[in-house]
Each structure stands twice: as C-alpha cells, then as structure tokens.
Write a protein that binds this DNA or RNA. Structure first.
Lengths: 336, 336
DNA sequence: CTGAAAGCGCTTACAG
DNA sequence: CTGAAAGCGCTTACAG
C-alpha cells in the first residue's frame, strides 16, 4: 500500500494542496463546506502528514536528544521520565542517548551526528571536561545537566550539591553522629560529581568543627550497589569505625545497607545513612532511606526553557542555574 | 551561521553533488585525489549531512519507537536499556514513548502519529485488547511485547509467564511451603499480565496437588511498592496466614518485604518470597530477591529481528514467539 | 569515474 | 478564501 500524500487528498477533494494543508493545520480561513469535503477525503484515504517532509521545510523536528550515562541507574531513568513528560507538554519528544559514561560516546553526542534529526540536546556528561565540551559543541542548541563543569559559553542547570552535602552532614551532626563516612566515589579518577559532593561533605564537617578524616572515605570500584557493598565490607573488615555514612548516590546506599547488616550493624541505630537522588525505591527500603532529593520537575522545566531559547537562536553567554533540592528525611537518618 | 549543504561542499571542491555524496558514503568509486579534495572541503566547512533530508529520499529514518507504560518501573527502564543497545547494533535509535498504561495513549501509539518519523514500533501494551490493537494498527511495522493478548495478524514476543509462575510455585513447594499467596494484581480490572501469572500460579498449585485458596490472593490499589505494602499489611491485619508469597513484580516484592517486617515476619524464615522481572536492585535487597528473570537480550534480539522483517515489507501472518526465562534463586526463597 | 536533473512530501511566500 | 510555483537538502536513476 503506497503512501497517501497531500496531493492525493487534494486531487480527491478537488482542491489545491494549499487548501488541504490549511485544513490539516486547522487554519480557520477555509470555508466550512470546503473543509468538510477535504476532511472526508482525508478520512477516506486515511491520510497522515509525513512528518519528515514537514520538518524538512520547517527546519524543526520536534525531537530533542536526552543524553545521559545509563538507564540502569534508576536516577537517570526517573530523570528521563520527568524530562519526557515536561518535553511532551511543550510538544517535544525525546530521543534516548545512553553514553555509558564513556568519553567517546559523550563526544559523539556533541559531534553533530544528529544534525537535522533533533532540534536540540539535553546532555548530562560524566567524563568530558568543560574544555572538551566547549570544543566539541558546535552551534548545536545544547543545555548541560549535572555537576560536571560547564563551559561558560553553554547553559547549565543543576542542584547545589555542595550545599546539599553540607546539609546532609549537618543533619547527621544534629543526630549526634561524629564519625561520618563517605562511600562510593570512584576508585580511579574522581568524577566531578564525586568531587563536588566530597567537597560539600568536607564543608559540612568543618561547619560542625570536625576535621576531615580521610580514613572515613571509602571508594568503590564500581558505581552500583554491589560495588559499594564490597567496598564497605572490606573497609569494615579492615576496622573502619563509623556512626554515619553519606552515600554518593542511592544505589551505593542500598549496597551499604547489605554490608552493614552483614557486619551486624543496625541502621540507623549503629550507623545512620543518607543517600543521594531519592530514587523511588528509596522510600520503600528497610529502613527507608533519607536522601537528597533534587527538584526534578524544576530541573526539567528550566533546562527546557533554556533550550527553547537556544533553539530560538539565543546565542548569548551561557546561563548557569541552580534548582532546588531538599533532604527527604526517613528512617535511615531520622529527624533529631 | 547558516547550514552548510552538500551543494556548498561541491562548489568549494569544484565537483558535483553526486561526487560529494559518494565521498560521504564512502563509495569506493571516487578517485583518491578527488576524494581528498572533497574531504578537505567537508572539514573546512564543517559539513554534516542533514539527516531529515536524506531520510525523506530513502524513506527510512533509522528511528524506532519503543512504547511502554513507564520508566518509573525499573523493569521497563532496564528493558529500554537492553533494547537501546540492541537497536544501536543494528543502526537504529529509539524514540521513547511512555503510555502511562492509559488506553488513550496506547491508541495514539498505533494511530500513525509518527508517520514518517519512525521506521517501526515496538509496543508493550497494558490496556488495549487484541481487537483494538488489530483495528488501530494500520500497515505500520509493529512488534508487540509483553503478556497482553496479541492479534494473530501481528508479531509478538514474550516469555512464558504461565510456565514461569508454575515454576515459581514449584520452587516454593519444594521448600515445603503450603500456604502460598499471590500479591499485587490489580484491585480493579485485571491486566492480562496479572491474569496470566495468576493462571500459572494456579497451575503450579494444582501440579503440587494443592487447591487454589482465593483468600491467599491479595490485590493492590496501585502497582508500586507502597501500594503492595499497604495491601499486604491490611491483609495480615485481617489475619492472612501465609508461608510464601509470589509477587506480581519486583516492586511489589519490595513493598511486601516492608509489610512482613512490620508484622514481625522474617523472610525467608516465616515467609518465602519470589518476585518477577529480576530488576537490578533485586539482587541487592535484604534479603536478596528470588525473581523470575526474563531473557531480555533474547527478547530484544527477536523483537528487533521480526521488526526488521516487517520494515522489509514482510506482511505475512503474525509470528508469536517465546523467549527464555529462569528463576534467579536468591535469599528470599533459597534453593531447597 | 563524474555530472545534470528529477523527485522525496511537505510548507511558504506570492498572486489572485 | 484558494491556487501555482518554488524550495527545504538530500539521493537516485540516467547519461556520458
């Protein structure tokens, strides 16, 4: 069955293509009688506008690329969900791009590989430096997400992880905890995310007149729950003494829960735990997880606003914005 | 900065558009010297092929829609991840479509709204009946996923949920459990997924010479962990006596873990638990979750194969295929 | 090995 | 209120 074209509808209805186009777009200029005739032809033929052709003319596709490390991390899955909904409200659809956190894949995102397929790109980098991003990003409408350093020329939206980390520490101090560890930063080169959260952790300690004790820092070989569990188990075997733990993200906290239980430590009795991202399951774990909750809807809204301006040819200096966060307080580190 | 077109490159290199096109596509016919000259022009101008334009001519976009209920359920997030990787291997990219499990959104998927934007659709329905699917699906290349009934005219790939449920029951029987409950099917109209899994559950009981006891069936108002927790808590308060529990999916099992703990019941000591989908966190819970693990890579491979054939104009009768599954045995229902 | 022309299906000025 | 023409940026036969 060959494609039904605008032209076929026009021929059947006995009008020009322009008139059919007017009906399809609901332009009110068409006489009621004509409109009806055209609509009948559309229905009869089962005509659907060919989006690619329309886009070629308008120069817009209604598609946005959303690039991030992996859907396997529930945080990014939930981020994608929120962005997908916010994008839909503005008439945009999302093209998924999992980078795996590899710099090659990240570079490809900016390479213009999508030229003509997407109107803009939302990109949560993990590895690329701001210099690399600035170099690779052409005149592609782009908004950066997350804690990686963003070049001044590009727009960037994130939560204040420095403050969030410090608040997490303050929360634990208020609970009377003094030996507060940090779990889950990379064993190899630190991601900027880890760096920022660790810095905030240090600030929080200093604000509480505690000294940073690097022996309370537990790196993990992998960023998932299993890696965190192994790392913390090994550290506990080596005599690590903690009464609280800040986890780089919730998956790490899930691994920590297992490691602590295996060592006979209760949460929050022996060790209070705070996670990061507040993924949906966090509230359903035993104990439920206290976690830094980014304001994802606000993040999506601002990022999409900025991207819309870029698509509308805004080419000024990069805007660097913060959106809100709060500590979702639950059983693993209750209110004092 | 205006777009650089094939024509601009041709002009700069002093060749025809056809020759540039040959170079871009790596056709070996071009003389080395010419190729080099063209390549220089491409680099100098920063030319990127405009995909939309190419697609309009070739009639292919390299885009596939993947439609499913929601990314908020880790199972679908992981499904999307696996499909994304498998699609990438074949040169396809995925357009995300969250239906929310609403029949309106599901109908839209099949309405041809994407006409010209995607080459085909992978669709995991939740609400639409096979009749509705058959009616709504035009000549769109389509492969159905999941347990919903599929019209004979369409291709369909799923795991054998009936067998899986029966195996889960057999596993629990082998552990000596006799009061095996089922948790998490819809309080309102049953989804076909729930229906199939319940049926397999019943088969498993009968194979073990146990009678179905409907008082061991616990419906939930919502499909998330919190809904399952509330439902099971209420049932336990009402005197429900069980020594094992099959959960409609892993999120339900997570909720069950909390409800059981709150009632002082241990897992697997008092109650053994089996979940479904084997989402990544299942292995990291306390206790780690025994769960039905679908062979997702095989699912993606087969679905993509079938879709590729549909895109290649195969228009025969629908293929209905099963891919493998196994019971991932962990702490919540250990091996006997 | 290379070029000139037609065409993918639509929209956008421009006339009328 | 409606029509005829040009053009979006590419690829595909068809010549040479």
């Amino acid at each position: 069955m060959a494609r039904v074209r605008l032209q076929d509808v026009a021929a059947l209805a006995g009008v020009s293509m322009k008139t059919v186009s007017n009906v399809v777009h609901g332009h009110p200029v068409v006489r009621a009688e004509t409109r009806e005739r055209v609509q009948r032809a559309i229905d009869q033929l089962g005509y659907r506008p060919h989006l690619q052709a329309r886009n070629l003319v308008t120069g817009r596709t209604g598609l946005l690329a959303l690039a991030f490390p992996t859907l396997l991390n529930p945080y990014f899955a939930e981020l994608a969900h929120v962005f997908s909904a916010a994008a839909a409200e503005r008439g945009y659809r999302l093209l998924l791009e999992e980078t795996g956190g590899h710099s090659d894949s990240e570079r490809q995102i900016l390479s213009g590989r999508e030229a003509g397929m997407v109107d803009g790109v939302l990109f949560h980098p993990m590895r690329l430096t701001s210099v690399e991003i600035a170099q690779a990003a052409g005149d592609l409408p782009l908004v950066l997400l997350g804690e990686e350093p963003a070049p001044i020329s590009n727009d960037h939206v994130m939560i204040d992880n420095l403050a969030a980390a410090a608040e997490a520490v303050a929360h634990l101090l208020a609970l009377g905890r003094r030996r507060i560890g940090f779990l889950g930063h990379e064993a190899g080169e630190l991601s900027h995310t880890s760096r920022t959260r660790l810095l905030g952790y240090q600030q929080g300690l200093e604000a509480g007149r505690l000294r940073l004790d690097t022996s309370l820092l537990v790196r993990a070989e992998t960023g998932d729950a299993a890696g965190a569990e192994r790392a913390l188990s090994a550290a506990l075997n080596d005599g690590l003494q903690i009464d609280a733990l800040i986890c780089r993200h919730d998956l790490v906290a899930i691994g920590a829960l297992r490691a602590l239980a295996a060592h006979g430590l209760t949460v929050p009795g022996d060790v209070a735990i705070i996670g990061w991202d507040d993924i949906t399951v966090a509230a359903e774990l035993r104990p439920s997880l206290t976690s830094v909750q980014p304001d994802l809807p606000a993040l999506a809204r601002r990022a999409l606003d900025l991207l819309a301006e870029r698509i509308d040819d805004y080419s000024g200096v990069g805007r660097h914005e913060l959106v809100g966060h709060r500590l979702a307080v639950r059983e693993s580190a209750p209110a004092s």
